Simulated assay, not measured.
Amino acid sequence: MEFGNGNVKSYGKAMVPGNAGLIEALHVDGAIGRQSRELMLFGQFVGSWDLQCSRTDANGTVAEMEGELHFGWVLGGRAVQDIWIVPGRGVPGEGIPPLAFHGSTLRFYDSTIDAWRSTWVEPVNGRVRRFIGKPVAGDIVLLSDEDEPQLRWSFTKVQAKSFTWVGEISHDGGSTWEVEELMHATRRTVNRAL
């Protein structure tokens, strides 16, 4: 449903004023430019994924949850953005901290450092973290040491239809690491209705 100048559209039950312009300007169909090959490091994940997530809280209690993950090309095909939602939309516990999260990462390849700059923004738990990412022995490893504790996020066992994401934490400057989160992602063959 559109009203007036087309700036208000109905998506499901919610009225979303003005989002059409943002979506059109932000999202594109693929990588562009001289760094198209490098952009495929994260471009290979474009699409929608189902997540099986295991998270450990501060008391050592493990929570098992299902979630969703969506990757897309943005900023004129010069970057890859993702949205992580755990538990998934409409699932009990959605948006309830500290175990739930609903955040986004914006990633781009920076030729001056021959690596990816990546920033995670997650309002449910009030987190913003910057990472530098590179391929390492068949995996993709992102390190953040701007705040304590140090974080290491890795994409491992990457296949066309699946991968494992590992979130590790270090309280001793990277000398030792412990797994805080583990997610198994399976590519959706058909997008579910939202």
Rank of each mutant, 00 (worst) to 15 (best):
G12M: 05
A14S: 14
M15Q: 10
V16S: 04
V16K: 05
G18A: 06
A20P: 00
G21M: 05
G21K: 08
L22I: 14
E24M: 09
E24N: 07
E24W: 02
E24L: 08
H27L: 11
H27V: 15
H27A: 10
V28T: 14
V28Q: 02
V28A: 04
G30R: 06
G30T: 10
A31T: 03
I32P: 00
I32E: 02
G33W: 02
G33I: 11
G33K: 08
R34I: 13
R34W: 07
Q35P: 01
Q35N: 12
Q35S: 09
S36M: 10
R37E: 07
R37K: 13
R37C: 08
E38I: 11
L39W: 00
M40V: 10
M40G: 04
M40H: 06
M40Q: 07
L41A: 10
L41W: 03
F42V: 14
F42D: 00
F42R: 02
F42M: 06
G43D: 00
G43C: 06
Q44T: 15
Q44C: 11
F45I: 12
F45K: 03
V46W: 02
V46H: 04
G47M: 05
G47D: 01
S48N: 10
W49F: 07
W49D: 01
W49H: 05
D50K: 11
D50P: 01
L51P: 00
L51R: 02
Q52H: 14
Q52N: 13
Q52V: 15
S54N: 12
S54G: 13
R55E: 04
R55A: 11
R55Y: 10
R55M: 10
D57N: 14
D57C: 12
N59P: 10
G60H: 13
G60M: 14
T61S: 12
T61N: 13
